[in-house]
Design a binder for these strands. Structure first.
Lengths: 148, 148
DNA sequence: AAAGAAGAGTCAGTCTTGTTGACCTATCGA
DNA sequence: TCGATAGGTCAACAAGACTGACTCTTCTTT
């Protein structure tokens, strides 16, 4: 059993993560709302932007959702000319996804807003805090695999 | 415009936050699932544990949801004898919520799992990282109010 | 004392984002 | 040729949110 002060610190950490994540997603959500898009559209735009020429299955694995869940929003992004697709030459069953120019523009707007938000937090906390923050978040994220 | 290397760092930060938060909630979700509870039940348990004698309206404000959204899970937690309520003596319209012994036990199990998860990440990242992490998360969370 | 505001509860209807299961087509590899 | 893989789609369902419209009780204000 950890001592009481330590527990209080860790409780604060839990809350900071909860409220911080909530604040972080809320801002992008408001940009998306104006275009009638949701969080899943955002995640698709983000990861297709990050990993151009990704396949649908590759995207499903990153997002950890079913293909039925991605179907509708991915089709909508195609219809809105934000995401384009083409068959992979070495295996024509595989579709390669990439952002169109308009898709890149929207993705840059969303990601830019989040980057500015993070920079503001790094600045306010002191730039020396950034490395520690990144190290902890990376370790937290890494444990996703272990706990499966 | 920020330079490319900086943008790459900030992109990594966005992803670390996304994957880190996902890993963080997944673990508690699995404990809850065994009892047929969801994330909202968890948040209610957590904040009632953290703020004993909180009113329903107070809880709604913390969670930033509607009273209709809290209605069903709060009633279920009452029926499961995890949360108890009583009228506030100074204003009998107000209900004060608190955890029962069983509620405290479940809350401790959930929060304990998350505290251990955070501690493991702090340890792995090096204890000197913790202060920076906490400072950044606090600033990120603080911006929730500004952006309203 | 009457009127109105506030806390809580509930019903109804809707939406998003996810799930399974089942089934289809096209393509590839053995 | 046959089975596996990538992708797409339909249907049914569920959690967890929303708004709107009420009710009831209790407190506060006039």
């Amino acid at each position: 059993m950890v001592d009481r002060n330590r527990q209080a610190e860790l409780r604060d950490a839990i809350e900071a993560l909860y409220f911080g994540y909530r604040a972080f997603t809320d801002r992008a959500d408001r940009i998306l709302e104006r275009r009638g898009l949701g969080r899943l559209h955002h995640r698709i735009l983000y990861f297709v932007g990050r990993h151009p020429e990704v396949s649908v299955t590759g995207l499903l694995r990153i997002l950890a959702i079913s293909k039925q869940a991605i179907n509708v929003p991915l089709r909508q992004l195609g219809e809105m000319q934000l995401v384009a697709q083409s068959a992979a030459p070495e295996d024509r069953r595989v579709k390669r996804l990439r952002l169109t120019t308009a898709g890149q523009r929207l993705e840059a707007e969303l990601t830019g807003a989040q980057m500015r938000q993070l920079e503001a937090a790094f600045d306010a906390a002191g730039r020396e805090s950034e490395a520690g923050w990144a190290a902890v978040m990376a370790r937290l994220a890494a444990r996703a695999d272990q706990s499966t």
